[in-house]
Design a protein around this nucleic acid. Sequence first.
RNA 1: CGGGGUGUGGCGCAGUCCGGUAGCGCAACUGCUUUGGGAGCAGUGGGACGGAGGUUCAAAUCCUCUCACCCCGACCA
Length: 593
Amino acid sequence: MMGDNHSDIYTRLDPHGEVLAQRYSTYFAPTLKEAPAEAEIVSHKLLIRAGFIRRLAAGIYSYLPIGLRSLRKVERIIRGEMNRFGAREVLLPAVQPAELWKESGRWDQFGPELLRIKDRHDRDYVVGPTHEEVITDIIRREVRSFRDLPLNLFQIQTKFRDEIRPRFGLMRGREFIMKDGYSFDLDEVGAERSYQAMFNAYQNVFRRCGLKFAAVEANSGPIGGSYSHEFMVLADSGEDAIAFCPQCQYAANLEKATAPAYPITPGPIGQPLDKVYTPNCRHVPELARYLNVPEASIVKSLLFFDAQKNPLLVLIPGHREINLVKLRDALDGFEPTLASPEEAEKIMGVPMGYVTPIKAQTRIWADQGIERLKSGVAGAGEKDYHYLNAEVDRDFQVNQFLDLCLVEANDPCPKCGQPLDIKRGIEVGHVFKLGLKYSKALGATVTAADGSESLIVMGCYGIGVGRTLAAAAEQNHDPDGLVWPLALAPFQVALLPLQIQNPNVLAAAEELLDKLTAAGVEVLYDDRDVRPGVKFKDADLLGLPLRLTVSEKTLEKGGAELKNRADRVVVTLDLAAAPTEIVRLIKAFLAPS
RNA sequence: CGGGGUGUGGCGCAGUCCGGUAGCGCAACUGCUUUGGGAGCAGUGGGACGGAGGUUCAAAUCCUCUCACCCCGACCA
């Protein structure tokens, strides 16, 4: 087992048919000393430096061999859990005829994010950003009876969304690999069961990927129950903020988190309305300072326009921020626009800051906090004046009290009342109850047991595969490079012979390589003729969990040196015992918890 | 799309304000030495400055247009 049968290691495959080991000298793993200027966040920098990915265009990336190995591991974990929970894998076309999208109505709804192309006959197609249309089309053709349900199909495939702003490498690409799954059930009860199965599968996936994550309510609708959960990997660089309860299990996307009972000190009741001079107090902080009152006692009036361009006055406590997503939901999905200072002055007759709900001609919505405030400081509807003791119901009428404020850290948890924590996260997965939307639009029905025609109840479930990999990198790194969880590492072991000119060192390393691969261990064998420092630096940068060094020094001490990438613990192992020990360590790591 | 910024050998950057045809580090190649944390010395090759147009005796540098990329906001896996 020496240098004369180098190609042998390439015949050793893992159960998935993947080559177990690579010789670095003939591999393709270009590493960079410096991070390219284009990269901003750690995971992006390190994935490029370590030779996992390379950029082709904005939001479009190539996977190099070592990156592909890790990507495949994420895919395999996903595939395994999907299969286990009864989903069946399919592979749908990336290019889809426009007709289907016109049928579902999304040809018009989707906007420029949908990449539209034409074929040589000038026919319209789209490059699939998601596959509800295609999968529903298959189901409506093939599934006739309730006996064929439930059904759960998934695929792992490249998607394209012409994002307004791609960023952070794999984190938000335009072209990206997604696992998308769709469930089909006869009724709501079945759909709930499918949803729960996928929810559990997702927990397993992210747990097996070694990620610190949270399943977060993404849509806690008033109808009761939640219809959507996002799976968030916790990371400071995450694009989403999450409200977290350290006590109970409550976790919600900040945009959707309910802020029912944040502290508020009610104002006095029964006091007369008192007009006071407040020059140059257009903003809450200035007014609070000038009047020497807490910001919380000020009624902030914001003027919006709704879908019909009608003005809508929204009141919130002065120390709070408005949550535009909640306001949008309250407007049935219409994106409200804030009136400009000029527009506000024109409609309300006073400059911004002095707008008042008192005797206002517009519709008035208010956050529940205003209801609890009872009375406070409000604009006087006259430049440089405010009212003290403006009382809700007595002095101004609110059409509707809603939950409209952004949750803040230390607000009481809506479930248990404990102070909430706010963290940032990366959305790696989303499970969603679709209901009848697509089955209705495309006419996907089955004959039910009683002979009636019944619309299929759908659910959809997505995982960003590349994003999961990037999130793992974001969560696992140190100043020297990546620190992969064993399950996602491109190789489990870096085997470094330090003096390849020394026949003893080389022979010992080759033998270790042979034994390790025979035992099914994935090895990157650094047989390059470079200085030890280079090998160490690259091994650290690539983030392989275990590093096994063979050198003149270690041989003198009777073996090889094993170093753990994560905790940097070093042990010297007997040459003969090393492979067994490594296999033991790997098994211990990968053992189901 | 709005706002901000950057494009100069493979990578990271200086030079641009105050025009005079390009420089540094790393990488690559050759040789000698070195060999447990990205080696040292000597030497070699490689860019005409994102693109187009203009001003000028002369443009990386000034002007106009354009393209690409990155960052901040609304969308999403």
